[in-house]
Structure formats: C-alpha cells, structure tokens
Design a protein around this nucleic acid. Structure first.
Lengths: 339, 339
DNA sequence: GGCCGACGTGTAAGCGTTTACAGCGTTCTG
DNA sequence: CAGAACGCTGTAAACGCTTACACGTCGGCC
C-alpha cells in the first residue's frame, strides 16, 4: 500500500537484466531483439505494470500520441456523433482525443496550428472546415497526419459524402411526389470557413430541379446557417413569398426542425400544406417524423479515425478519399403537394 | 522560408543574455526576477516566437496541461453543451481538453485512471458519473484537481443543480394544473455508474406528489434510460396501464421527446390528452413546444472549468460546491387534464 | 564597519524516453 | 580460413524544460 511511484523503463531494465535500449526496442516490437529476450522483458514489464510516460516519449520523439480534432463547435448533433465515432476508435488504439473549436479568424487559426500541442500531435482531424492555402501549408509543415471530414483538401485524407448526390436525392424525392415549387434552406452567406458542403448541396438542388424541368428561382434559396433558429427564420422568409414553396429541402435536419416550427406557428400542417426533407437522420428525426437523408454521421468519425491510425501505422501510402454511404429515409414529413 | 526549428528556452537565454533558469522564472512570472530583466527576456521570447514545449514541461514537472473530461458518451445533447462550455473556458487559459468516454466496468475504469495520460494531467472533470470509493481513492492519489458535474463526490469540486428541486418544480407545475395521475420517466434500473441524479429526481417527484396529497403508485414510475427510444418505450408502458396518467414528468427532454412520439403514434394530442414536462431545455424543446426545466447545461461546463482553473491557480482552498440555477419554462406541452 | 538577509542570477542535475553508434560473437562467403 | 556481414546488445547523448543549491552584491542594522 505504499505510494507506488510508477515504474520506469529503468526498473524494467534492472528487473529483466537488460539495458534500457534493449527494453525500449523489445517493448516497441522493433526487430533485432532475440525472442527469448523479448519474452523476459515483457514479463518484467507487466510484472511492474510498466507504462511508458507519454511526456518522455513526446520529448524524445517530438510527437505525442494525441489526435487533435478541430470542429466548428462541440454542441451540435452532427459533431457529437463524429466525436463519438472517432473516440471509440482512437481510444481502442491508445490515442488521446483532444478536441477544440476553431477560431473564426484566419490568424488566430494559424496561431493555434503552430502551437506545440497541435504541431507535435500525432494526427489532426478537421471537421467541416476549410481554409486558405497558407493555413493548409502550415498544417502540412507540421508533419502531422491529416484527415478532413466533410470537405476535401489537398494533401489530407478525406471522409465525406456525395454532397451533390444528397441534394439531388432529396429534391428528386420531392419532384417525384409532384412538387414544382421547392425551397432550399442553405448555409450562411458569409461563411468564414468557406465551407464547400453548402455549395455542393446547392448545386445538387439546382441540378435536380433542372433535370425535372423546373425553373430556378433565387428567392427560393434562403440561408439558414445550419441552426434550428436559422431554419425557422429562413422558412418564414419563404412563407412570406407571394408564391411560397409547397416543399422545402433543408441542408440539415436541425434547419428542417426550425422550418417545422415556423410552419406550425402559421398553422400549416406538415406534410399536407408543406413537405420537408432534411439531411442527417438526427436522433429526433423519427420523433417528429422527418423525411431525411441518412449519412450515418458517427461512421464518419469512425472512418476518419481509422484512416488516421492506418496512416500512422505506415500502411496506406497516399492520402485516401473515403466516401460514406447515404440513403433516403422517408417518413411523414413528405407527401404530394396540396391540390 | 527555412524549415523553422521551433525556438527553445536556450535560444531565448542566448538572445537575452541570461541563463535558462532566469528565463524560465521570468516567463512564468515567478518572483525574484528584476523587472528590467523580465522585460528583456519577454522581448526576446516573443521576438523568437518562443513557445515552451508541453512535453518537456510535462517531463520536468510530472504534470501536463491537459484537462481530462470523462463522460458517459459524447453524443447526447447535454454532454455536448457541457463540453462546449468547458472548452471555451479551458482554451482561454491555455489548457487542452481531452475527452473520453468512461468504460462501464469498474476495473477498466480503474485501469484508465492509472494510465499516465490521466494520472499526470492537470485536472479531471467527470460528468454524471459516480463510482466506488476505491475508484475515488485512485483518482485522489493521482493528485489531480478533481471536479464533478451532476453528482457529488467527496473530495471533488462539484457543479450540480438541485435535482430534488427540479423534480418538485416540474411535478408541482402539473399538480397545480390539476393533474392527479402523474407518471415518471426515470433512468435505468441497472445503472453501472450508480448515478444518483435519477434517484434524487425520483425523490423530488414523490415528495411533490405527497405534498399535493396524491398517493404514490409504483406502476407510474418507468425506466426510460435517458434516451429518446427509452422514453418512447416507457411512455407506451404507461399508456397501456388500466388507469394511464394524464401527465408525465420526464427526467430529460430526450425522454420527453420519445414520449411525445409514443403519444402521437396513438393519436393522443399533447397537451389535450397528455401533459408532458422534461428537463434540460434542449435545443429542440422550443421546436416541439415542450415545457421543461432549464438547467443551462453549457453553464455547467463553464462553471466546472472555471472551478478547476481557480484551484490550479492555487486560489480557493477547499473543494467548492456550486449549484447552478434552474427555472421552469412553460410551453405548449402542458395544460389542465382532460375533463 | 562588519554582519545578515534579501534579492537577482547562474550551474547543473534531474525528468523518462529514443536512438546513433559501437562492440561482440556467429555465421557466411570466396 | 580470413574477412565481411549479420544479429544482438549496451553506452551515452540527446530531447527541452524545472528547480535545488550556490554564489555574488547590496542595503540596513547595531
């Protein structure tokens, strides 16, 4: 019951009768260690419950075992799913998950990229973020293993979905139901991150309309900022139109929820008066009966973390681009337009 | 444009003309450094853009600058709010936020507490978790600064709400509306974490009923596991009763959402046929018009992180217990019982 | 005027790893 | 059979900080 000083590599060396160098090599699975030696050392190590000190390793190698995850925020549903997925994989392989929200201004971002904690981490996962080439260069210069979720960046491993396809799938679902006047709840107009997901979904929305022979209308595209409140506001703008839409595609479920609220406050019934499609398959989508495109968000985290670990292990040479699956889930929020 | 080796304390010492010891003292704001000296050193430091290496500090001091946050999961709304609040405060003071989900079995938990990353962190915030005294001792032995959110543990700083009061407030709201048959959506029956929040809310629920002169009924208390699905299941059980409740208090908004869904699937109208109160003031509570008790979750994270930082700075001697405010927000999900 | 304490500073020994290099038997090779 | 090559192991120098200790220098005090 003594105050157990944690044992060091020296203790293991002493107990096993080898030098610290050999112990280090043996325990890390490096070649050029006699099998018998390795066995004896391993036995000594776990007899002493030896656990290498991350700080010491960090000092000696210049890299920590932490994986840094940069997100726009920590509180939205989608990001929670991603963190959860990534954490599960990373903890499995003995990595720590360091989360932080990215400052909105470019110089503050650069500053944080240069901070030793980030620069000397093992890997870096960024979510739904995009930035100047200078920022990308800074990050590359750190020698970090880089993975991006939701958006493609040169030199990064990438996990994303077919964002154009998502929008097409959603809007086509609406046109097939007979809708001809279809609104769009989009991102923000002045996005500091130059996030390209909204752009691509907008593209998909337009392309689906064109394919259905429906004319575009600028007024039908409203920024909703990917938030509940933003969705409600945008929906209200749409409903105030002279010729309001009979259906709306929201780029995220949270915006769709806001839209639902806006519709209800005007005594409109979903889907009788208004059809609604979102994206995400949020936990609460089934609760309110929202038709949506599932993109299994937690899987994004799992894939990104897996990619990172593979590359850290030295497998998979070049940056890989993974595309996660999507699928339409129809619920009660979509129906043919009112006649 | 050279490959900038990051500058070390040695560089600063050389440029300023002092020894590394003095530089170290000056930069950390320790006493016994002449003001002029400090100024010169600081100038040299930021001319070189010096940033101390966390690994080296960790090795030398035996403590990292990371704050570890242990949560039951990363994906539920409440935990997202807490992380967000804590991260904002911690990043401000230069601490890293390391998140991980706690393994459900006691020995795995003990193991992770002993891991050097945790044991040598600066602080530890645990959320909605509770455990054996052995686990608590292990944690104390690490010398970490400890803060618990949502539940009280000896030796920990604590941030929580009056959980009994929350339930009383909610249930009293219902009794005042005239309800006499009030159900409870509770936690799980076999909770591996021995979480005491559900116990206290149960206490408050019962006490409010007793105060209103309403007899208790075991059948009206159903476990809902704090999840949407669990809430739906529990609600269905309640509705299958011979004498179903006219109102339900859910210990979390997410369970209340599930209950709403269950009610709707039976063509019951909220609040005409059934009143519902939750806890959290979830982002989507306004969307579905849920009456709830706001506990400003993100504030919990802010307070906990603040507490931790204060104690790390050496202020506030003893473990502090903070109580966050709560308030009833009435929306459209509550009304007098059907006549 | 000598002594003491406070103040400012430097020297050097850790902290616990990794890794370049060297050394030593064995086994190949020609 | 000499010498090269290889396999295994050890020595010791980093890595970039903190901190105990020692060493002036100065002012104040009796």
């Amino acid at each position: 019951m003594s105050n157990q000083r944690p044992s060091t590599i020296d203790d293991v060396a002493r107990l096993s009768g080898y030098s610290v160098a050999t112990v280090s090599r043996a325990l890390r699975g490096l070649p050029n260690v006699a099998p018998a030696t390795r066995a004896r050392i391993e036995e000594a190590a776990d007899r002493l419950q030896y656990q290498p000190d991350p700080a010491a390793i960090g000092l000696a190698t210049g890299r920590s075992r932490a994986v840094v995850m940069a997100l726009p925020n920590l509180s939205s549903w989608y990001f929670g799913q991603i963190m959860a997925g990534a954490e599960a994989v990373l903890s499995e392989s003995g990595h720590d998950l360091l989360v932080f929200t990215l400052p909105p201004t470019a110089d503050k971002r650069l500053e944080s990229f240069r901070s030793p904690t980030v620069a000397r981490a093992a890997g870096f996962i960024m979510v739904d973020l995009q930035f100047s080439s200078q920022e990308a260069m800074t990050l590359q210069a750190t020698g970090l293993e880089l993975v991006s979720i939701g958006t493609s960046i040169g030199g990064f491993g990438t996990v994303r979905i077919d964002d154009i396809g998502v929008a097409e799938m959603a809007v086509t679902h609406l046109t097939e139901l007979g809708h001809r006047r279809i609104g769009l709840l989009a991102g923000q107009n002045d996005d500091p991150f130059h996030f390209d997901v909204p752009r691509e979904r907008q593209l998909g929305y337009r392309s689906a309309l064109i394919q259905a022979g429906i004319p575009l209308d600028q007024d039908l595209e409203q920024p909703g900022n990917f938030s509940v409140q933003g969705g409600a506001d945008a929906m209200n703008t749409l409903l105030d139109l002279d010729d309001p839409p009979t259906a709306v595609f929201a780029m995220s479920d949270e915006m769709a929820f806001g839209a639902m609220q806006a519709a209800r406050s005007r005594n409109l019934v979903v889907p009788d008066d208004l059809s609604l499609v979102g994206v995400d398959n949020h936990d609460l989508a089934p609760v309110v009966g929202l038709t949506t495109i599932d993109q299994s968000a937690d899987e994004h985290g799992v894939l990104a973390a897996g990619l990172l670990i593979e590359r850290l292990a030295g497998d998979s040479p070049d940056p890989v681009n993974l595309q996660a699956p999507i699928r339409l889930i129809t619920r009660q929020s979509t129906a043919p337009p009112p006649s």
